[in-house]
Amino acid sequence: MAERILVCDDEAHILYAVSFKLSTAGFEIAQANNGQEAIEWLESNTPDFVITDYQMPFVDGFELCRFLRSRPQTATVPIIMLTAKALELSEDEVKAELGLETILMKPFSPRGLLETVRKTLAARTPAAAVAS
C-alpha cells in the first residue's frame, strides 16, 4: 500500500509541484492550502509523512507541527519543512523542538525532496517491522 503524504503550502504552484513529483513516484497525496486546512484534514486522517511550508496564513508551519506532535497518532510522523524564510531561530533548534526530519530551503530540488522522503521512510520501515 502506498504511503500517504500530506503536503501543505499556500503557494499553489509549489503545492502542485511537490504533489506532482511525489504522486509520480507512487505516493498517495493529500493537499492543504494552509495549516488550517491541514488540521481539518487531520481530524479524520492520519498521514505517513508530512511536508509543510513554514509561512502560511491562518495557521503556519510551526503551529501545524506542534499540532501534529500533540496528538498520539502523529507524534512521531516524519515532517519536512519547506521554507523561503531565513529562519529567525537556528535550524537545529527548530528541528529539535519540532522533531523535524529536515528543513529544506526554497528554492528546493523536487528530486532531492523525493530522495529524502524515500530514505526517511526506508529507515523507519525496518524499525517499525521490528517493533510490530
Binding site: A17, F20, K21, F108, P110
Partner: peptide, 14 residues
Amino acid sequence: VKTPLASVKAYAEM
C-alpha cells in the same frame, strides 16, 4: 524572491 524562484527551479528540474 525565493518563492517564485522555487517554482521556476522545481518545474525546470522536473
